[in-house]
Design a protein around this nucleic acid. Structure first.
Lengths: 358, 358
DNA sequence: ATGAAAGCGCTAACAT
DNA sequence: ATGTTAGCGCTTTCAT
């Protein structure tokens, strides 16, 4: 003690392998071997090095390691909003997979802003993530071309990449799910079914609208634009739209809501409009929600359930296959949805009930 | 075309500043200046460099930059579980703050596992994050000492650090909230109030139990261990415990549930036990939940609301103050809770209602 | 089993 | 306004 190393211990912000080597009286490379569990180090030497590491509080600087090795063992995840239950479940699934493969995760929310999506992706690329899982906000992914050239792997989740961008994609069966939900309402006697969707610029919203129309067409029902409301799930806007719908001359007897937040806001609006606390039955309207949500079971809300966990896991699996060298053609997977009847979607139209009841 | 740079364009995984410099016919440093928007570059030169950057698809390698500069402009966030609404709201607030300050965010979930908490934190430190926001799973943070020595800043959120670890901390007023919730039930005539909390090893669960006891004591009510059930919110276990509680000789007339998941699982269990869909009123029991949750308004559930967004924002503010040089004494902030009456907590005891009704 | 030297791609300090 | 040089902390390659 008292020699050079001691000075080194407080000198810079952090001790380096050099400091550890000096403290342990070995060469830099030996420290590297110990830190990385490489074979070919005498047990006694290794112990000495380990002791120095602990004494100095040494931690390997991964920036330097990454710079040298070229691989970062990290992936980037861009979603729409962590605070949304759908995406937080997806995040968790991706996180689990990353953990399992020994990868670290960068994550960020695009807030449905394509510039922000790009900035996040490029920031992650600047950190040289090995791969990306992207829920795209934008429809132009030309900015990814240099990254792909550089060997970065990307998987798109929930929404496909923009035209011209070839990449693995995992989607939910949006049209099929919306078709099934609509058909379910039709099967229960509804003829005037309103669709309350998110902003039509969002891929999933447009696809679900398509499924709704397909189901109407398949049943020979007319498509009435007056029954379709698309837009971000703003409570005030939705209340106004619902009021308009329900007080119209020929109001809908059933609603199909386009995503979790829309469903929840619809339930709120109905509760306040009809003054009833029993949201599931509000106004006697039938309701099927696209996307399951916490407590939908207690509220008795019939839903077309997606599986965000499976979505995340599938996307991660695909990505890690690419990262382990898979070079096959890109795949596009569509995950099935599942209709869960809980009461709100099985009510017959009010008029029919009136007739049978009266 | 056809000259050296073209070879360079496909040679390595990624073009470097050197490649750009060669392609633009300038020196490395000039490229650096352009990339980093440093002043002192002729507009024409800058354009030439910019063109080369775009042509080659150059992106700065942040690992190299970080290695050289020593600052990473990134922070690490360790929470308990992204898929939990409380923590995903907190995450989003931290993410917003990080974005606002131009920082990138590493995040990970500890799953209530202290080893995993430590691994995540140390992995983030190996990436040389500038700061950390930690919702600790463990109670020993000695492993952070070398990181603190190295100048890493950490803020603890939702739960305090282990003994001997001095760091900024932001908590909710757990005891005060639980006290208020319990007092609310007592004020509505309840004398036998059960407490359903999470595992007692969790700081917040223990604090809330403390608040519950304080309120009982303040009202001169006895503490009955038979009315207290602590444990992770496993549906089956909770059903069994609730059944036992409610079929006991002297059952509680009110419940205080210890966190969001516990509240939700309690509602589920009550709904299935009493066979009623009206979860809020299930069994005629009064109920106050600690922590607000989506749709609690529709279900009419009275809660003691925390503010996870504010928690995250406050923690981030504290961290960024430290990162910008604040070196004052560590602070410990307690955020107030808010009791939101929605019906379930205002019901008088069943026996009293029987008496007045009959 | 151990070590010396080179260099990953960048920025900081110092020329010119 | 532009260029040169050194070196961040590590891994790789090649000795010994």
């Amino acid at each position: 003690m008292g020699d050079d190393p001691c000075v080194g211990e407080t000198r810079r912000g952090r001790p380096t392998m050099n400091d550890v080597a000096a403290a342990a009286g070995v060469a830099l490379k030996t420290v590297s071997r110990v830190v990385n569990n490489e074979p070919g180090v005498n047990a006694a030497t290794a112990d000495r090095v380990q002791a120095a590491i602990e004494r100095l509080g040494y931690r390997r600087n991964d920036s330097a390691r990454i710079l040298r090795r070229g691989r970062t063992a990290s992936i980037g995840l861009v979603i729409e909003d962590v605070a949304d239950a759908f995406y937080s479940s997806l995040s968790r699934a991706v996180e689990d997979a990353a953990l399992h493969h020994g990868y670290l995760l960068f994550s960020g929310s695009s807030r449905e802003d394509s510039a922000r999506e790009r900035d996040l992706v490029l920031a992650f690329c600047a950190r040289r993530v090995d791969g990306l899982i992207i829920v795209p906000a934008g429809r132009d992914h030309a900015y990814l071309a240099p990254e792909f050239d550089a060997g970065i792997k990307a998987v798109f989740a929930d929404r496909p990449p923009g035209a011209g961008c070839e990449a693995d994609t995992v989607l939910c069966d949006n049209t099929g799910g919306a078709r099934a939900g609509t058909a379910h309402l039709i099967a229960h006697g509804h003829r005037r079914i309103a669709f309350l969707g998110d902003s039509p610029a969002i891929f999933t919203a447009a696809e679900r609208l398509r499924g709704y129309r397909q189901a109407l067409a398949a049943a020979g029902l007319p498509y009435d634009e007056g029954l379709v409301v698309m837009g971000p799930p703003d409570p005030a806007r939705m209340r106004a739209d619902l009021t308009r719908l329900l007080t119209a001359f020929d109001p809908p007897t059933a609603l199909l809501t386009g995503n979790g937040r829309t469903t929840v806001e619809t339930l709120r609006a109905l509760a306040s409009l009809t003054g009833t606390a029993d949201a599931g039955a509000a106004g006697g309207l039938a309701l099927v929600g696209f996307d399951d949500f916490e407590l939908a079971d207690l509220l008795g809300v019939t839903v077309v359930a997606q599986d965000p966990t499976r979505l995340g896991r599938t996307a991660a699996d695909l990505l890690f296959m690419r990262l382990s060298g898979d070079d096959g053609p890109t795949s596009r997977i569509e995950l099935a949805t599942r209709l869960i009847p809980r009461g709100s979607g099985e009510r017959p139209p009010l008029s029919v009930r009136d007739r049978t009841a009266g």
